[in-house]
Write a protein that binds this DNA or RNA. Structure first.
Lengths: 190, 190
DNA sequence: GCACTACCTGGACGATCGTCCAGGTAACTT
DNA sequence: AAGTTACCTGGACGATCGTCCAGGTAGTGC
């Protein structure tokens, strides 16, 4: 074996191009139709590859879903951390940055957010998915100073609740509408 | 038409026995395997009725899922309201009652809670389900005094977040562990 | 050039899906 | 007793599912 191979799911992966193309297509399908809409054929059509290509790159459909959600969780987590931190160094208030990020997650990023919570629910039934689901909590935790403090735990819960409830609003809430609640949740922490 | 009939889903329903049996079976299936596990045949087997019976009583599988989740939301909502109110008149602290109810929802009632949040996510994609999903919020709101207050909205979000995060804990949190967070969320309201 | 190997896919298989329909059953009316 | 009607279901249909496999292709080492 001359070229550098990595073992992934019991299968070799070199360029990984096809593989990531498939994962990205799967994420688009999940954002649009939910996990329920994921089949070999829908994802293959979305990615523009033959259905058999999925069986080649992933041991099972389940592996694909798990891989996609895990990968998505990582991307979203870093995106949020970067957003909050960069607006913090710009001198903006932390509450404002959080409120804006939440409004974004419920507006332009709505599909991504739904995917994220589908992961949560899947993780509730499958322990193997829990570390991936908790990444999101870990990112938020890394933004706090005393992660164990009661007020901070309340803040974490509040953020999840705001997002979840925002998903069943008829119109997504604006950052301005969210701001007072975020401020209230953040208040005892400063 | 001598006996009293009610129109349900464009179909008559008299005794409704079969119908509720099917709905209850569907709920058990959802609690066990999630919405993804619901098929005509799995529900029929769980209910001990022939698969064709589902097509007779429900216009489509989708109607069954929607009906089941709506019905479950109603039951859970009244159950929670009763629990909180009854323990309130017993002189216990409200925070304690809430914490206990949450711990119950994450322990013995875990399956029910997961079903509830599957409804949330389904409602995020299908506006028709949103009123049913919001019942849960309405119940909580009916317990508060000033539903529009910022602190109360934070409390509502916090409760949803606690439940959601509790579902991906490896061991369900106890009422004692939940109590400080609940108290913290309830604090500004009294 | 040839052999080799990793990479890829068309096409098909059996399983399972949602739904339908012809016909059976039992309760009520007359 | 006979008729009527609401209630129910066995069995089958076509569609779609996940997965497999024989074989094709393109790149590398000689």
């Amino acid at each position: 074996m001359s070229t550098a191979y990595r073992r992934v799911d019991g299968r070799r992966a070199r360029g990984d191009r096809r593989r990531t193309e498939i994962v990205e297509a799967a994420l688009r399908v999940i954002e649009r139709d939910g996990v329920a809409g994921v089949t070999h054929r829908t994802v293959a059509a979305e990615a523009g590859v033959p259905p058999a290509s999925l069986t080649y790159h992933f041991a099972s459909l389940d592996d694909l879903v798990v891989g996609t959600l895990t990968w998505s969780a990582e991307r979203m987590a870093t995106r949020i951390r970067d957003g909050i931190e960069s607006s913090r160094i710009k001198g903006r208030s932390q509450a404002g940055a959080v409120a804006e990020t939440l409004a974004e997650a419920l507006g332009p990023q709505r599909g991504r957010t739904m995917a994220e919570y589908e992961l949560y629910l899947l993780a509730a039934r499958r322990p193997a998915l829990r570390p991936a689901a908790r990444q999101w909590l870990d990112v938020l935790t890394s933004l706090g100073r005393q992660p164990d403090e009661v007020g901070f735990r309340a803040f974490l819960a509040g953020v999840d609740g705001i997002l979840l409830q925002g998903l069943i609003d008829d119109d997504p809430p604006t950052a301005a509408e969210l701001l007072p609640v975020v401020e209230h949740l953040l208040e005892p922490l400063r």
